[in-house]
Design a protein around this nucleic acid. Structure first.
Length: 656
RNA sequence: GCCCGAGUAGCUCAGUGGUAGAGCAGCUCAUUCGUAAUGAGCAGGUCAGGGGUUCGAAUCCCCUCUCGGGCUCCA
């Protein structure tokens, strides 16, 4: 007799041994969509036996756990297909990942996958899927495992490393008692912890996406394997939706929009990762920066300005030459001194602080600068504006008394979120990154700084997770992530409590008891880098940026040449109301000019013809709307756009 | 940096060993039009660069550069 509770239902009783599947069938003779089970909270095969007294929960293919099982099983099918097509291929690991899966291979004779090969692999996978091969689990000793995989160096390496890599190996199917493997129909066996779907027929809504290189165990000193990425879903509809999302993401690619809208480019003559901004792009930057500067000044920051290069001494004191020399541009020699392009602004801001004796009355002292820094990024990591070699940080350094730390961080995080929200971004998550293994400083300091960051996070009300050991070597930090319009996460702002620089630069202030004390230092980038934030905005808005950022907000289109006088009058009204508007001369047909203006994503296209000249009206085409709104009185239109032509007023938002 | 892929007009692309092509964009002229492409003409190329094979190379081979997808890295 076995008594099994089903989550959300009553307890069932069975004679003898039962599997999760038996339990499921006792509830529903023809269950649909269930592909896995959780027994006492642990994800397991439906075929797994369930002990007396267990609590069982069934996992649907559309749930996150269910999708992960489908993806992992699809990865196995892919490995089976590759091994059949390439006898002698070595296979490494094949986990499920966000939206899909991958599997790493080493093909015999140094063969490489091509895009056509992916189609062949897909075809083979579909054969395996139609064959409805069952996934069967076996538990083996280490010795049997090593025997089965004697020709598979990656598998045997995983098994052998069980002692020193116990945790990692656990995820690959190695446990203290031995190893588990999964077989499909005697044709394929893989070292695997599971669970899997019952048989391959439960799979099928997948697509192989691309082939890429990947290092064995993620170590660039080890061999490079070939990785195939794929995506897999429970239903055809979900798969198609995902493929559409990928297409949508491609359309939103900021590099594509940047070219289409003539915003920026990367001249080869200048070098990789070094963008130039064209007039329209530069105007957007200008608006971003001006809005930000004004907000900072209102929020009690003082502006700073610092040069682009400095003597090596500065970076010896700051420690950058010790920790990050590889990421710095190489030095220049001049008159016996060695200069480096700056990789960070903080040492220079510290020198401003240190230029005089500071009183506790001056604290918190908040310095702010759009500081351009240069970092040597390896060629393969460059990615449009999102990863460049010359970037402008909206960088601030706040120096405060220890007692002010928690309040200052709370205030700062609120400011950061208000600024991000004023760009129309709404969905935030944060990570609190704690002390890494490779770090400097006293435990007590780390403890204090980390707890101050936590206080700020709690006060902000945004969700956060702890990223254990992910802090910088000198500081715990908060990283703010945002979700864009199509659900992608981007890391933007970072707040760090520096435990090193104040000591390295021997900073101090005179406290109210006339004693000299060490100030605390907070580093903060809000956009992160202006370039990257620019890219995020372009992708979030799919190129249709908020009106206040744009150089051209309104285009006025006279129907015929003889309407141009009135069109100019309209532009005059708009400009005196503070908008940026221009006339598109009637040299081309109206339809053609409308099309052009719409492709440029102009927020408002005003068409003026005979009726409008007589009635002092405009025909309004709003961005995103298909149908024009004709005969709008000019005064009413000007009134309606009064808000959106100007940058949002951040101070109002921070106070509310 | 490493693996794979791709570079043809400003952009999107066709051209697989035999005279370098189209559409859009640009320029000129004509057209004056009420909501997503008016017409005609002109101009535009070291086929990424270099080397090789060949009677002949955009096309085949080698090297380099740049870009893309990943990996590693990201103060």
């Amino acid at each position: 007799m076995a008594r099994i509770s089903v989550l959300g239902e009553q307890t069932h009783e069975f004679d003898g041994v039962v599997s999760a599947l038996d339990v499921l069938r006792s509830i529903d003779p023809r269950p649909k969509g269930v592909i896995s089970a959780k027994v006492n909270g642990a994800l397991t095969d439906l075929s797994a036996l369930v002990e007396d007294g267990s609590v069982v929960e069934f996992v649907n293919g559309s749930s996150p756990d269910g999708l992960s099982v489908i993806r992992h099983s699809t990865a196995h099918v892919m490995a089976q297909a590759v091994l059949e097509l390439y006898p002698g291929a070595k296979y490494a690991i094949g986990p499920s990942i966000a939206d899909g899966f991958y599997y790493d291979f080493e093909l015999p004779d140094n063969q490489r996958f091509s895009d056509e090969d992916l189609l062949r692999v897909e075809t083979k996978m579909r054969e395996i899927i139609s064959a409805k091969q069952p996934f069967t689990r076996e538990e083996l000793s280490y010795e049997s495992g090593l025997e089965i995989f004697r020709d598979q160096p990656f598998k045997t390496e995983i098994i052998r490393q069980v002692q020193e890599l116990a945790d990692e190996a656990l995820a690959e199917g190695v446990s203290d008692d031995g190893v588990s493997v999964y077989r499909n129909a005697d044709k394929f066996v893989d070292l695997c912890k599971g669970p899997h779907v019952g048989h391959t027929g439960q799979l099928g809504h997948f697509k192989l996406l691309r082939v890429a290189g990947a290092y064995w165990r993620g170590d660039e000193n080890k061999e490079q394997l070939q990785r195939i990425y794929g995506t897999a879903w429970e239903s055809k509809a979900q798969l198609e939706e995902h493929l559409n999302r990928l297409k949508e993401a491609e359309k939103r690619d900021h590099r594509r929009i940047g070219a289409e809208q003539d915003l920026f480019h990367f001249p080869v003559e200048i070098g990789g990762g070094l963008p130039v901004f064209h007039p329209k792009g530069a105007f957007i930057r200008y608006q971003m920066e001006e809005m930000s500067r004004k907000a900072h000044i209102k929020a009690g920051y003082q502006l700073a300005w610092t040069p682009h290069i400095a003597k090596s001494t500065l970076y010896e004191i700051s420690g950058h030459l010790g920790w990050y020399k590889d990421g710095m541009y190489p030095p220049m020699e001049m008159e016996g001194a060695t200069y480096y392009p700056k990789p960070m602004n903080c040492p220079m801001h510290i020198l401003i602080y240190r230029s005089q004796l500071r009183s506790y009355r001056e604290l918190p002292l908040r310095l702010f600068e759009f500081g351009t820094v240069y970092r040597f990024e390896r060629s393969g990591v460059l990615h449009g504006l999102a990863r460049v070699r010359g970037l402008t940080q909206d960088d601030s350094h706040i120096f405060c008394a220890p007692s002010q730390l928690a309040d200052e961080l709370t205030r700062l995080l609120k400011f950061v979120l208000a600024m991000l929200r004023s760009f129309g971004l709404k969905d935030f998550e944060a990570e609190l990154a704690t002390r890494p293994d490779k770090s400097v400083g006293e435990d007590a300091e780390w403890e204090e700084a980390t707890s101050a960051l936590k206080t700020a996070l709690e006060a902000s009300g945004i969700p956060y997770v702890i990223a254990e050991g992910e802090g910088a070597f000198y500081a715990p930090k908060i990283d703010v992530h945002l979700k864009d319009a199509i659900g992608r996460r981007w890391q933007v702002s970072t707040l760090q409590v520096d435990l090193q620089m104040p000591q390295r630069f021997d900073m101090n202030f005179v406290d109210n008891d006339n004693q000299r004390r060490r100030p605390y230092m907070i580093h903060r980038a809000l956009f992160g880098s202006v370039e990257r934030f620019f890219a995020i905005l372009l992708e979030h808005y799919a190129g249709a940026l908020p009106m206040w950022l744009l150089m051209s907000q309104i285009q006025v289109l006279p129907v015929r040449k003889d309407h141009e006088t009135y069109a100019k009058e309209v532009v005059g009204r708009l400009v005196s109301a503070g908008a940026r508007a221009e006339v598109a001369d009637a040299t081309e047909p109206l339809g053609s000019r409308i099309r052009k203006a719409k492709l440029e994503k102009t927020p408002y296209i005003l068409v003026v013809g005979d009726d409008d000249v007589n009635a002092k009206t405009v025909g309004v085409n709003s961005r995103g709307s298909e149908t024009p709104n004709r005969g709008v009185p000019l005064d009413a239109f000007v009134e309606s756009i009064k808000e959106e032509i100007f940058p949002p007023d951040l101070l109002l938002e921070t106070e509310s």
